[in-house]
Design a protein around this nucleic acid. Structure first.
Lengths: 167, 167
DNA sequence: ATAAACTTTCAATAATTATTGAAAGTTTAA
DNA sequence: TTAAACTTTCAATAATTATTGAAAGTTTAT
């Protein structure tokens, strides 16, 4: 496998993985492209490389900036805008975990809390609903906390030592 | 909020959360329904409750069984088939994490390994591709390992103590 | 103030994914 | 073996989501 093949494989795989971390294909592919680029890329560069339209590129770059994963780079003397992504995987993971938690997990935790807090009318079905949603609430909250705590550790060593601990 | 409202809220929320754990809405809703049900449900019961077609119900129940989350229950004397879901959240989390890892994460890890193993031709761009995909490979593998290890602990205490450890 | 260079917006369209429903398939009871 | 009770399959259709492209908007240089 040569450079070009490897690049295409990486970008398309990372793109299809987008669903795993809750973003769309084009968005993930743009991020992948920037992630392995040695220099900032312009909108033209991205459009051409991924063969997507200007509008699509613009919209997805904005979303990536909203997530805090991509930043605009001003190159002196250049009229075009250039873009770069966070290059440190640890930091990238931190941002993604934080955003997903905020956008998707927190709202669900809230619903689970509300649902599990309804008045117990003594019927079996109500008891079951309360019991099960409470269990789900606790699990979700604990998992969310853990992921955030783990990912917030800037140093990689703690991840490795934790891994040993629970082996 | 009364029982019926709470039930609807839970089922629809859990359904829209499906994307977070990589399954579709109907599948997640069926699972949610079974999760709070005090007794096994038939296909009729599910169709009626969620207002979805027979075909849809059948296909999604099969998928849930493929995941190992739902099991068929034979009730003596009854012609219909009945279904139940795993009721223990810890065990549910274990199954989901294992399946997602197998279906989605492992294939990505393999691609990252392949891509990061291309021959270093000495160019800057190749070096960058290798470096970045290797970092991503290591991160993904470590995260996947951790999640599986954590979730495989049957006892809840370890989760709690781990959480304290990294606070 | 003008125009060139560039970016954003958004209605139209395309692509993808989920859902239906009816025909075909299966199982059970008599 | 037949027929009723039930489940599965899958082509057609609907719903959702992503993408385009061109017009409108913005910025910069002169």
């Amino acid at each position: 496998m040569n450079y070009d093949e490897a690049k295409i494989k990486f970008v398309s795989t990372w793109g299809s993985l987008g669903s795993l971390w809750g973003i769309n294909k084009a968005m993930a592919q743009i991020q992948a492209l920037l992630f392995i680029s040695t220099k900032p890329l312009s909108m033209e560069d991205i459009m051409e490389d991924l063969k997507i339209s200007r509008g699509n590129t613009s919209m997805n770059l904005r979303q990536l900036m909203d997530w805090g994963i991509v930043t605009k780079e001003i190159i002196p003397g250049e009229r075009k805008e250039y873009f770069t992504t966070e290059k440190d995987v640890q930091e990238l993971a931190r941002i993604i975990a934080k955003e997903r938690s905020r956008r998707e997990i927190q709202p669900v935790i809230k619903v689970l809390k509300d649902v599990s807090s309804i008045k117990d009318d003594g019927t079996e079905k109500t008891k079951e609903l309360i019991k099960q949603t409470k269990a789900l609430h606790d699990l979700t909250e604990t998992a969310d906390d853990m992921i955030n705590k783990i990912v917030n550790q800037k140093q990689n060593w703690i991840t490795k030592s934790l891994l040993k601990l629970i082996k």
